[in-house]
């Protein structure tokens, strides 16, 4: 009986994931002008950031021990992380706030679907990933193309970095989600979400080695903004080789997942519907 429940649970979660992705993709195809707008914005952002790096490295040799090629690679990981957050997490969290405001959340709470799973994955912007994010990264990849051999990349470092990106993404998603739950109590969550986004991208121009110790402690505990980019790049480029730290990151991920579930239940118990 329990095994059957688990199977059904997995089945319905997969269905939600697949249909959310499909619906969001069709939606992005319907609003093509949005795609052009997003692409243009991401492309110009990328170009402007490259101008910034170029100008900066015209005067400066290294930033926290990272040379120009390493900073370009660092920027690539920053961008990948931003797109992952934007595609898999940000839009769904944005919509949670609207659902609370309008009372639309009632509809999903009354349906026989896992509500937390649904609000987490209700919108996966695959269209933005394909039409905007990937093309906008091309200039950066072109600039990096002749510089790969200048980077100190090892297989172990890449694997550790990859694990950090995945776990870091889960951690920052949970963090953003927890902050956005304040909408249950305040009725409005836009600035809370913006603040959460600013926290997770805080210092995304600064490599791990440039952070003061106090900020490193905060960035690995209460405000976990150092795992997905700073630490992952440090691993990939062989700057940090203490792989035992990965165990701590795994533990941190589990803690944040647990916190997300607990605080979601707590927020729901204080939810007063706005729809009736």
């Amino acid at each position: 009986m329990k095994l059957l429940d688990i199977k059904q649970g997995i089945k319905i979660r997969w269905k939600i994931l697949a249909s959310s992705s499909m619906f969001s993709f069709k939606e992005s195809l319907a609003y093509t002008m949005n795609n052009y707008g997003n692409f243009l914005s991401m492309m110009v952002y990328m170009l402007m950031y490259l101008v910034f790096l170029d100008v900066l490295f015209g005067r400066v040799k290294t930033i926290a021990g990272y040379n120009y090629s390493e900073m370009l690679f660092f920027t690539l990981i920053v961008q990948i992380n931003y797109y992952l957050t934007f595609v898999f997490s940000l839009t769904s969290i944005d919509q949670l706030d609207v659902s609370i405001n309008t009372g639309e959340l009632d509809l999903w709470l009354s349906k026989p679907v896992p509500a937390l799973w649904y609000v987490t994955f209700r919108k996966i912007n695959l269209g933005d990933l394909i039409f905007s994010a990937i093309p906008a990264t091309i200039p950066l990849i072109v600039m990096l193309s002749g510089k790969w051999n200048l980077l100190n990349i090892s297989l172990g470092g890449v694997l550790a970095g990859f694990v950090c990106i995945i776990l870091g993404q889960i951690i920052i998603h949970c963090f953003q989600f927890i902050i956005s739950l304040t909408a249950f109590f305040t009725g409005e969550g836009k600035n809370a979400r913006n603040m959460a986004m600013e926290i997770i991208s805080f210092g995304d121009s600064v490599p791990f080695e440039g952070y003061p110790s106090a900020l490193k402690v905060v960035g690995f505990t209460l405000i976990p903004n150092l795992v997905h980019t700073a630490l992952s790049v440090s691993f990939i480029l062989g700057k940090s080789v203490n792989y035992s730290f990965l165990l701590y990151v795994l533990l941190l991920t589990l803690v944040f997942l647990w916190l997300k579930t607990k605080l979601w239940k707590f927020a729901l118990s204080h939810y007063s519907s706005a729809s009736s």
């Binding site: 926290a64 304040t182 969550g189 836009k190 600035n191 603040m195 210092g203 121009s205």
Partner: peptide, 24 residues
């Protein structure tokens, strides 16, 4: 509450720039 979140957000933007330039 939103006002406070907004203020913290602004402080973070500024803090990020100060951190970068203190490293440079």
């Amino acid at each position: 509450t939103e006002v406070w979140f907004q203020i913290i957000q602004r402080l973070l933007v500024l803090g990020g720039i100060v951190l970068l330039w203190s490293v440079i």
